[in-house]
Computed example of a mutant assay.
Amino acid sequence: MEAAVIYEHGGPGSIRYVRDFPDPVPAAGEVVVRVKAASLNYHDVFTRRGMPGIKVPMPCIMGIDFAGNIAALGAGVSHWAVGDRVMIDPVDRVGGGGLIGEVRHGGLAEYCAVPAHNLVRLPGNVSYETAACLPVAYGTALRMMVTIGQVKAEEKVLILGASGGVGTCCVQLAKLAGAEVIVCASSTEKLARLKELGAEYGIDYSREDFVKWVYAKYGKPHRRSFDSGVDVVVNFTGGDTWVPSLKTLHRQGRILTCGATAGFDPKEDLRFIWTFELNIRGSNGWMREDLIALLDLVGSGKLKTIIDREFSLADTNEAFQLLEDRAVFGKVIVKP
């Protein structure tokens, strides 16, 4: 089969497109999925580079998020049939087998063998491309904004890194909750597209200090006041943006985080946390019920997946380069 494969950890351009990778055979309790669409996540970049403490068996086919049709059933699989439309929940919550697309082959190939308990039935009104966007980015966003963050109507929500897969979903979820949304992005083009998604205000962080913008618009937070500043900051970038994010929150404001793409060990300033009684809420991934909720939201048209562009398997390196250069708006799809 055709596949995008890494044979060792490496930098940009290190993924090899091969036409004769062995076809998977389903073990007991597994199915083989004919992949129709996969989407890239920054976690795939980390897998390609190599992450401390995680041993990736080589060769490795990455691709955490994907959807397709069941092509073959292994022994003992029930309640599924060849031809069923499926989305993959890449986290093995039953067998403890590790993350699909990291410690076992993923969706950047024509076919992929997965445990049957990783399957999520895909309704006919949800496309393969849409489903491929959901688990990692949209599942993470839903859990962070709804389950953990509890974003409410009329709250002021500042979203950093708003133009990526997680960010564009966060914008939509905040609007569904009735919040006022302020987004940060690196270009006027991205900000314009975010406003089309419902954001009221946009800040080009390459030209403007978002802390000063918040102070000018909403006032500088005071330790004895519950107004001024913003109610919620969504920050999954970390790095140099962490302490400035704390400074924008009013007393008892919330900062939500699910990652640290710009650095996991930022400088901290505990004075803001205790002085303003700030709530720091971490959110880790998603649960199966989050994926079911997402399928209902996209199926009903309340939420839409934002896809920047599609690539073939042969152009997987190019797709990754766009992701690493942060030159995309929303998600990148790879189709066998």
Rank of each mutant, 00 (worst) to 15 (best):
M1C: 05
M1T: 03
A3V: 13
V5P: 00
I6G: 10
G11N: 07
V18A: 01
D20R: 11
V32E: 05
M51H: 07
P52N: 12
P57S: 13
M58A: 01
G63A: 07
N69M: 11
A71L: 12
L73I: 09
V82D: 03
V82P: 06
G83F: 11
G97W: 05
G101T: 06
G101R: 07
E102K: 06
H105F: 10
H105R: 14
E110N: 11
H117I: 01
P123D: 12
P123H: 09
G124P: 00
E129K: 11
T130L: 03
A131Y: 01
V136T: 07
Y138R: 06
V146M: 09
Q150E: 15
A153E: 15
G161C: 07
G161T: 09
G164T: 02
C170W: 07
V181E: 11
I182R: 02
S187A: 09
S187R: 06
L191Y: 08
A192L: 09
G198P: 01
Y201L: 15
D204R: 11
H222G: 11
F226Y: 15
V234T: 09
W242V: 10
V243M: 11
S245F: 07
H250Y: 09
T257M: 02
I273C: 12
W274F: 15
W274N: 03
N279H: 11
I280G: 09
S283H: 06
W286K: 05
D290W: 10
D296Q: 14
L297G: 12
L297N: 10
S300E: 12
I307R: 05
D308P: 04
F311T: 01
L313W: 07
L313R: 07
D315A: 15
D325L: 10
R326D: 14
A327P: 01
V332I: 15
